[in-house]
Amino acid sequence: MTSRTVKFKIYRYDPDKDAAPYMQDISVELDPSDRKLLDALVKIKALDDSMSYRRSCREGVCGSDAMNINGKNGLACLTDIDSLPQPITLRPLPGLPVIRDLIVDMTQFFKQYHSIKPYVVNNSPAPEMERLQTPEEREELNGLYECILCACCSTSCPSFWWNPDKFVGPAGLLAAYRFIADTRDEATNERLDNLEDPYRLFRCHTIMNCVDVCPKHLNPTKAIGKIKELMLSRTV
């Protein structure tokens, strides 16, 4: 890569001084080593320290820097700048209240995650050593446990936009299935009871935006399908 000037349109809003949000045009000079969108945001912040966004690991594992990039949710640290048509339009994740600039209030998202009881429930006496699990049983957790709670999926889901307080959303349901699928967990029935509701699970209409945007290539729709199957099979 070479040095180049890249054009951005970025959503700006500081409740302390702005009456309303606005889109700001910004051009920034990038070095050859600036490869990812997060590199560009760091450069922009060096020029204007009021530019606000979350970031931490810069390698796609902490889930901090999710945002809406040219209309699609993704992680800034995993997005190649040069793959994006300019001006690169950056907005906060859709469907959650904006606190400032690209920073959204994730309370509702985590509330839904917490609502599925995201921990292994096992009331049998703990053995002295590990609970055994075959490699095949453990493999059932692949594609589920890797979630980084970035919220790209839930905030791209129209059902979550409409009912963020009632529909668990793809991230929370992926986590729900992660515990159902774990042979060490003894609470499958309670977990299904917890989701048996017109909204919590069944608002998923398999639109599959979640699958399309997941930066970890996970498939919440598939996990939701499996929960629905279990729900059906226990009623018949």
Binding site: T134, P135, D182
Partner: peptide, 16 residues
């Protein structure tokens, strides 16, 4: 940590 639910990979015998 395993009892807390940590998804360790497993040996053929089912151990960590």
């Amino acid at each position: 940590l395993e009892h807390y639910g940590m998804p360790f990979d497993r040996t053929d015998e089912g151990k960590i």
